[in-house]
Design a protein around this nucleic acid. Structure first.
Lengths: 337, 337
DNA sequence: GATGCTGGTGTAAACCTTTTCATAAATCAT
DNA sequence: ATGATTTATGAAAAGGTTTACACCAGCATC
């Protein structure tokens, strides 16, 4: 029992050739009933399990997917991850994860997995092609790729994610439906996501015939600190909004903290909305009204897309947009005129 | 450029044998300077990159570590994950993750990675040996394993995690130092972690010569719901504690929500402590005083331990306990007598 | 001048599969 | 009964490395 059993052990025990063993296991239809039974008996007896390395070498497939994410610890990513994992595992694939921390050298480093055939496909949560895969012509041949969460700017890569502009538009329309007209958008930024979310905001305002006060659109990183800072900058002004629509929940959280610290009562004095529905959105005081990203579904859908691409099927559409759902909690109130 | 270059292409271009190429790449010392230069030039020209499958087949090593966790989306796990990933990647290993959801069949399924040589070692965040690895004698040969976060009950497997009893003891001592004597422990449970944390609580109480009111030790799942429920059960009693020490932050959160809903002012009326320092501990009102788990370090330490075991070195100690740090926020106040 | 090392290289085996191609047996049509 | 087709199997190649072993030249040792 020192060495694990090989296909030859099974073959000789079953009294057949190794080719037959292989077929009995992989294409049971192509083998006679009686021999198949002999083979599986021999497999059971030897405890044989096929050596994946040898198989992968021969078939030039690894049944592994490499996932590159800037920070796997980020709750937003980690939940997408479980969707990815579930879908992959359901189809017999394993996932290999790379935490890049947006470090170009780490991104490059991870490409070894694909250039050395250890991964058949690539899922990008980073918002850009890995450094080193970008401009070059043949250096590393592109495997099938799908971008998740954040679309890739230049490259023409299939994308799966939430419909950011529709989502934020829905959010803004909810605020408008509550009588708000002076709605600030906190989160203007350079990233694709920030731009799309701002676009959704503008679309809703325009659709309702509301003028956007330019001073109500603030640059703001999508972090708690960012939201805090934006509020501080806003309060040096004379005109104030009645509602804050934030680029994401983290920023909204900062806004709530900052407004509470200034002694305001929420949602009586101001309404606040976020986007994402991160786990603690429901634990803040007041509980945050927000748009829920279907993170698990996003993960599953992107993995499914990638795996069908791997099967050689061109995806019907190069973009899958999932709807964000409005989650009503208690950070938004009717506007008191 | 259709096929990727193989070692033979490099060899013939450099005018040497494939053995020399292999040596030039893997044991540069064993090859003459001039030939080594020829080889690396040829590598550069062909864009050669060694086929990992072939190498793994030959060397019987995959340079992969399988990580089994019940829920990768759990913020506690996902942060350990980045520590694991960082340490692995630093030493040239890749990580393969399996989300088991505590489903025995999924646990068994993931063993294929180790039985098929696709992973050299195993990290368990599950608190138990994977189903199917447990009782059997030879079925799957045990790879090097380290348990993280939660020790394995029966098996003698190296463990890395936070020192739960010392940690909770520190927490309890903090409450005692604030003048509290009637301290409830919410979180009695069957899991190893729950037991250790309860032990820390008892140790501190005993050390301070305080009697533990048995009705102050409550069963309670480590979830927000669990914490809520425990408070409700407690409030049918006539005697109430002045401080709640919770098995983890999630439960503490439930306690805070429940107490606030009953109209109490925190920390004036009751003090509350948690354990873990999950990300939103600082965002609750009042911000939660708790013990911080060094999650990143835990991940890194366990991966380091596993990798040294893989190198054939027996670990100096089969248990690494990291200290939890007291994080002072605002959910604990001096006891008003 | 024979002997023994040493450092550098090449040959070929081994790792374990999958799969092509050939062969033999069995089935079918005529 | 003959030839054509199908079905089931085996022999062997291919996949791309690493590495044990053999070899050879150069050099030091006695």
């Amino acid at each position: 029992m020192a060495k694990p059993a090989t296909i030859e052990d099974v073959a000789s025990l079953a009294g057949v050739s190794i080719a037959t063993v292989s077929r009995a296991l992989n294409e049971p239809g192509k083998v006679a009933d009686t021999t198949r039974r002999k083979v599986i008996a021999a497999v059971a007896q030897t405890g044989y399990t096929t050596n994946a390395m040898a198989r992968n070498l021969r078939t030039r497939k690894s049944n592994m997917i490499l996932i590159l994410a800037p920070d796997v610890g980020d709750p937003n990513f980690s939940n997408i991850l479980v969707g990815l994992e579930t879908a992959a595992s359901k189809r017999g694939y394993g996932i290999l994860i790379g935490n890049t921390q947006n470090d170009p050298s780490r991104e490059t480093d991870y490409l070894r997995f694909i250039s050395s055939n250890q991964a058949d496909g690539l899922i990008l949560l980073t918002g850009h092609l890995p450094f080193g895969l970008a401009a070059q012509k043949p250096a590393v041949r592109l495997p099938p790729i799908v971008a998740v969460n954040e679309p890739l700017p230049d490259a023409d890569i299939p994308f799966v994610g939430v419909d950011n502009v529709e989502g934020v538009r829905t959010a803004a329309e909810h605020l408008i439906s509550q009588g708000h007209t002076r709605i600030a958008f906190l989160g203007r930024g350079a990233s694709a996501i920030a731009r799309m979310r701002e676009a959704g905001y503008r679309k809703a305002m325009e659709g309702a015939g509301l003028r956007i006060d330019p001073s109500f659109v603030l640059e703001c990183e999508g972090t708690t600190e960012g939201g805090r800072g934006a509020v501080e900058r806003m309060f040096v002004r004379d005109r104030l909004p009645s509602a804050f629509l934030c680029v994401n929940d983290a920023a909204a959280l900062g806004v709530i903290i900052s407004l509470s610290a200034r002694g305001y009562q929420l949602p009586r004095d101001f309404s606040v909305m976020g986007f994402d529905d991160i786990s603690y959105a429901s634990f803040v005081t007041p509980p945050l009204t927000t748009m829920k990203q279907p993170r698990h579904d996003i993960g599953a859908a992107s993995m499914d897309l990638l795996l069908t691409m791997l099967e050689g099927i061109e995806p019907r559409s190069r973009q899958v947009l999932l709807r964000a759902d409005l989650i009503l909690r208690n950070s938004v109130a009717m506007h008191r005129r």
